[in-house]
Design a protein around this nucleic acid. Structure first.
Length: 271
DNA sequence: CAGCGCCCCTGCCCGC
DNA sequence: TGCGGGCAGGGGCGCT
């Protein structure tokens, strides 16, 4: 579910509710996420305060004086603020209770998400240390993209979904950004001009920013930190629209598979 | 080392 | 109404 805009929406939704208030209780109802939720989480975190929440790629980083809690939402995860007396859902796996009366709950039906702890400097963590630039930063630009892509035969869609190239662009927004840029998703990354990369960068940033401003995309069950769905789904022009008319030329949108991910595009408008 | 499948898991939708 | 198959927003890992 969550791509960068959904993770960013989650961060903004939970931050004020959990910052600078002592953690009073941690409940691991089911530790079997992508990796086992570390048992020592409770002893490490109890009585600590979260001093800062940031995002790197699709990882949420909740910093304390002693180390950092790393949370990833996987495909189906969501984090929300509730009161501790809210009945548990079947898929509420981890809960953090705070002295200010709030509880932060991770719900993740598919359990592809992760809750990890590190006391090392966060950018050295093996999950984070090889990541490419943030798409909304100046380090993500057409010069870098152009240079990195030379001699690469990989499809452009897979290229921009590669976290070593740029982070945070998942299947929905890759489809959307390529449509907005008029680029065929299967085109070899190495055969795209600098000018077209410039357009692609602009569209990636625009779409991600617009999605964030609308609270992300809710396809099925995503909710932001305060429990509200995202409203960007209505803005999607190709994702999930196989067979429907292209908004620009009315030809039916085509679906193919690239890197085993559903890929929707317009055969007329994207070359 | 690039480029692939595979796999982790539950839920939902579709066709029979 | 039940059941099997396929697919879903991610991404690490192992194999060729």
């Amino acid at each position: 579910m969550p791509e960068l805009p959904e993770v960013e929406t989650t961060l903004r939704g939970i931050a004020t509710h959990v910052l600078n208030t002592p953690i009073t209780r941690i409940t691991i109802r089911n530790p079997r996420l992508r990796w086992p939720v570390p048992n020592e989480l409770a002893s490490r975190l109890i009585h600590q305060k979260i001093t800062q929440i940031t995002r790197r790629a699709k990882y949420l980083l909740l910093a304390t004086k002693k180390g950092t809690l790393i949370i990833h939402l996987g495909m189906s995860g969501s984090l929300r603020i509730v009161t501790p007396d809210t009945p548990y859902d079947k898929h509420d796996h981890v809960e953090f209770c705070f002295a200010n009366g709030n509880a932060l709950r991770l719900k993740d039906p598919r359990r592809f998400g992760a809750v990890l702890w590190t006391s090392e400097p966060i950018d050295k963590h093996p999950l984070l240390d090889a990541l490419g630039p943030e798409p909304l930063s100046d380090e993500f630009n057409s010069e870098t993209l152009f240079r990195l892509s030379r001699n690469k035969t990989v499809a452009i869609k897979q290229f921009i979904m590669n976290s070593k190239v740029v982070v945070g662009i998942g299947n929905i927004y890759a489809n959307e950004a390529l449509f907005a840029s008029g680029i065929h998703p299967g085109r070899a990354a190495g055969k795209i001009s600098k000018k077209r990369y410039k357009r692609l960068c602009i569209e990636c940033k625009r779409i991600l920013e617009q999605a964030i401003s609308q609270g992300g995309t809710t396809l099925k069950d995503f909710v932001g930190g305060t429990g509200k769905p995202g409203y960007f789904k209505q803005e999607l022009l190709v994702y999930g629209r196989k067979g429907m008319p292209c908004g620009q030329c009315q030809k039916p949108l085509k679906e193919i598979r690239l890197g085993n991910r559903s890929t929707v595009y317009c055969t007329h408008c994207q070359k």
